[in-house]
Design a protein around this nucleic acid. Structure first.
Lengths: 125, 125
DNA sequence: CAGTATATGCAAATGCATTCGCAATTGCAA
DNA sequence: TTGCAATTGCGAATGCATTTGCATATACTG
């Protein structure tokens, strides 16, 4: 039977209110504001449980630990922005046209990813 | 003093003739056609040396080992295609317009990456 | 051709994100 | 409130790409 613990609540709250995909460490830090004793292993266990329940989506980042987000917030097609100052990942609405014109002759495209790099609003100040 | 050994020659040849960015393992396999005794550690040592000399560019792949390519072949702006069947990475010419319209208000873009996924010509057959 | 510093192969070591074992803790049904 | 199974924290273990130590092999100068 699944129990509702303060660590799980804190982790899910962190994910829900993060406003952007979070790395396991970012989740740990955010949730420790509520449950200081929280352990990284527990974060991973909870992420795994959420993922098994299909409630979590992973966002891979080039050369870094993946970021996680509640699936329902990640549902629609969109892309990500990576802040090279704070290492944060942000979601961006919309997409672009004409990607298939990049495709080499005879290749078949099933999907795509776009990553923009730069400075987020906070770090730009 | 730097020596020209058959393993280095084989590794550089593999990179030069690969026609696409290669992973350390792909480089190992390709170069072993010439030097069967070649060791993965030697591949890494050679890649490191090339990188230190600025002759090598790394292409990060989501959740996988990076691919490497001689810098002069990677010079111009372009993007990559990942074949989900053979795990190969291919270069694509060209780029797309309108990326900056994705940018959230107040964010500053310094660069971008585009990855297309699908099947390469070989795997489609 | 000999001498030696550079390279190699091998296996062991690292660094890392992630997972596990286990004893102690804690929700929650009765 | 009680009892126990689900959870947790902790440290040790894993899996992985990559690096290193060292004895052996080899390229290259003289």
């Amino acid at each position: 039977m699944v129990r509702r613990t303060k660590q799980r609540t804190a982790i899910e709250t962190a994910l829900r209110e993060g406003g952007r995909p979070l790395s396991p460490d970012e989740i740990l830090t955010a949730a420790q504001a509520t449950v200081p004793s929280l352990n990284l292993a527990t974060v991973y266990r909870t992420l795994k449980r959420l993922a098994a329940a299909g409630m979590l989506t992973a966002i891979e980042v080039l050369g870094e630990a993946p970021r996680y987000r509640l699936a329902k917030e990640e549902m629609h097609h969109h892309h990500h922005f990576y802040c090279s100052s704070c290492q944060g990942v942000f979601c961006m609405e919309g997409c672009v046209e004409g990607l298939s014109k990049l495709l080499p002759q005879g290749f078949q495209m099933t999907g795509h990813d776009i990553f923009l790099y730069g400075l987020c609003l906070q770090c730009r100040k």
